[in-house]
Each structure stands twice: as structure tokens, then as C-alpha cells.
Simulated assay, not measured.
Amino acid sequence: MAPAPTFADVLPVKQLSSHQYTVALENEWCIGTVPNGGYVTSAFLVVARTHMSLTHRSRAEPHPINLHLEFLRRTSIGPTLFTVKDVKLGARISNLHITLSQQEGPNDQWQDEVEGYITISNLGTEAGLSIDTDYELYPPVLPVDLNLLSRGQDPNYALRVEDPFAEFRRAAQNIQMFLIRPERRPAGRSKAIIDQWVRFAVGGNGPNGRWTNDALGFIVDIFPQIVESYVNPFVEEAALGQHSESELKEFLRSNEPRAKYWYPTLVLNLDVKKLLPPEGVEWLFVRVKAKAIRNGRFDLDVEVWDVQKELVATSSHSSLVVDASRNTTRKGKTKTAKL
């Protein structure tokens, strides 16, 4: 039996030289006309891993363990050029600087759009002091029965149905999000905290249910937007079945019939704590929280846990809140040039 496809199959990398690679960003992973920032982040992870396995294969350092990205300009669907600089090659830890560039403007000039530093090591052979800190999420996570959850019958979590702005948020259609049922949400729980169990949507554009470390960039940037629960609560309630389809259609007819806001990422940090199995896992738990939403800018803290209740990764974001027209009224630039 052939192994199940993983997120690396979503982002196939072609090596152009020892320090340059190309990846094609696809329309199905966009928010509006812009590739989802987590999808782009996963492209960086795959490129970094590919670079170490091809250019520095003797070092046995295949795993990105820390990443810092700055999104200088919005990316576009089509081919991208990743240029890698070996900042430091060490016996245990190496550091890479990677730049994503695309051809932009009337003269198709190359422009740097995302830059980042990635720390590489080997999660499978790491050794050193380990201490059980007894850290747990607070407020506590509601229990789950994954067998019942897969059938939509878990008493605490329900499937978030298709987004009413699915064409705008195409990237989110590649996964299934199971959120706390409204009637089970603990009293006093802030709307600035979102808990979700996530798996890939079967039959979608993703790898049909397998999360690997390559996909950690994507999973830390795909969730119901916290701002929406404040500014558009009716739509978020409808996504969990609190309103009928006809009620939602009537609401959209009499209100804003499109997604109101776009949330571009300025900076994204990722710290990887655990190596997932190479064949991937079906389920991961994600908690997202925001501390302050002010003057069109907000922060996000993200934690990813596996079914063994072990911390897989943490992430922090700095993001903007801008009108969705900033995304949709700018023509999406489909790159057709071959690298």
C-alpha cells in the first residue's frame, strides 16, 4: 500500500541550484487573491528541510525547530523563488536565512516578499536535560472522544460548517474544524480564545488527514478569526448551526454580503517542540488567543497539541485588520513564468 500523502505533497519543491529552489503557490490555498500566510510558512519549512537533505545531506539535520518570518509584501499564486543563505552550519544546530521572491510590477522585476530565519536540528536525536514542568492549558481543555468526533457526535465539539464566504477563504476549505459547541462553552470564557480539533478535509486539496511537521506552518495560521466573533457574531453562530441556512442567507442579503475584513500577517514565529511521525497524524488540537485588538492591529498566541496531550508547537503572530477590499480589489497576479 502506498503511503498516505502528506503536506509536502501539497508543496512540491524543485531545486534549481545548491541554494535556490522553486515552489508554485496554488489558488486553492488562498485567502482572496493572497496565499494563506500559514501555507507560505509551510513552504519555508519544506524548502529548509529540502535544502539540508540535498545540499548538506551529510549533516543529518533535517528538522526546522524554530522559524521567524517577516511578510514584507503580499505574495501571489504562481511560481516563487526561494534563495537560501547558510548563516551558520553547526554540528548540532544550523541557521538558514531564506528569502521568497516573485516577479512583480510592469517589468516583472524580482521582488523580495517574505524573509525569514530558520533554525535546523534533528528532533529524532536531540539529547539533554528534560524537565516535566506540568504545564497545562488554562482555561482547561474540554475532553473529547475522537471516535465520536469523527462522526460529529462528540458532546463537547461540533463541526464548523462551510464558511459563508468560502470562495474568499478558500484555504480554510481544506480542513475540518471542530469547535466547542455553543451550549458547552464554559461560562465566562472569553471570545478571544478559540479551541479547535482539526483534521484535513477528505476529498479536498489537502493530503486527506495527515499532519506532519511540514504542515505546522499551515495549522498555526488557519482557524476561525477571533475578530469575527466580535464584529460578525451572527455569521460565526451560523457556522456552528445556531441559525438555519435560510436565516443566514437573509442576514447576508440585509447586511454585508461579503467578508468584511482581511487579516494579513506581519510577523510569524514558530517554535517546534515535537517530531510527528513521518506518516503523519489525523488529529491535532489548537488553541488560539488574542490579548489585545487595537488600532487595526492584533496579536495571536497559538499552541498545537497532539492526542497524547504533548505540546507539538507554539506560535506567535502580529497581524493587521484591514478591509477585505484591500485584498480583493487588487488584481491577483498569477505567475506563469517557469523557473
Rank of each mutant, 00 (worst) to 15 (best):
A324M: 05
G203Y: 08
V307T: 15
L123H: 05
E245M: 09
F234T: 14
Q15A: 15
N327F: 02
P233Q: 04
L81W: 02
D214S: 08
T328S: 12
K249L: 03
A24W: 05
L123N: 05
A2L: 13
R92M: 14
S229Y: 13
R59M: 14
W197A: 03
N232A: 05
D112R: 08
V288T: 15
E28A: 11
D86K: 00
Q176V: 03
H56K: 12
K85Q: 15
N213D: 01
L142V: 04
N205I: 00
A238L: 02
A292M: 11
S94M: 12
H56R: 09
I194G: 02
D163L: 04
S316Y: 01
V47L: 02
N95W: 10
K14Y: 04
R287V: 03
L89A: 08
P164C: 10
G32I: 02
E26S: 10
E104L: 11
E113Y: 06
A127K: 14
I120D: 01
G38R: 00
S318G: 14
G204T: 03
T119N: 08
E279F: 04
N174R: 08
G78R: 00
T6V: 07
M177I: 11
L268N: 02
P139V: 10
H68E: 14
V87S: 14
N295M: 11
R185Q: 12
S58H: 12
L268D: 01
D132K: 07
G37V: 09
L248Y: 00
H19A: 09
F285L: 10
Q103M: 09
I118A: 01
L159N: 08
A324C: 14
A158F: 06
G38F: 09
E104H: 11
S130Q: 15
R326L: 12
L270T: 02
E70T: 13
E104C: 08
A43W: 00
R258G: 07
L137A: 09
W305G: 05
N122T: 09
R184P: 00
Q103Y: 04
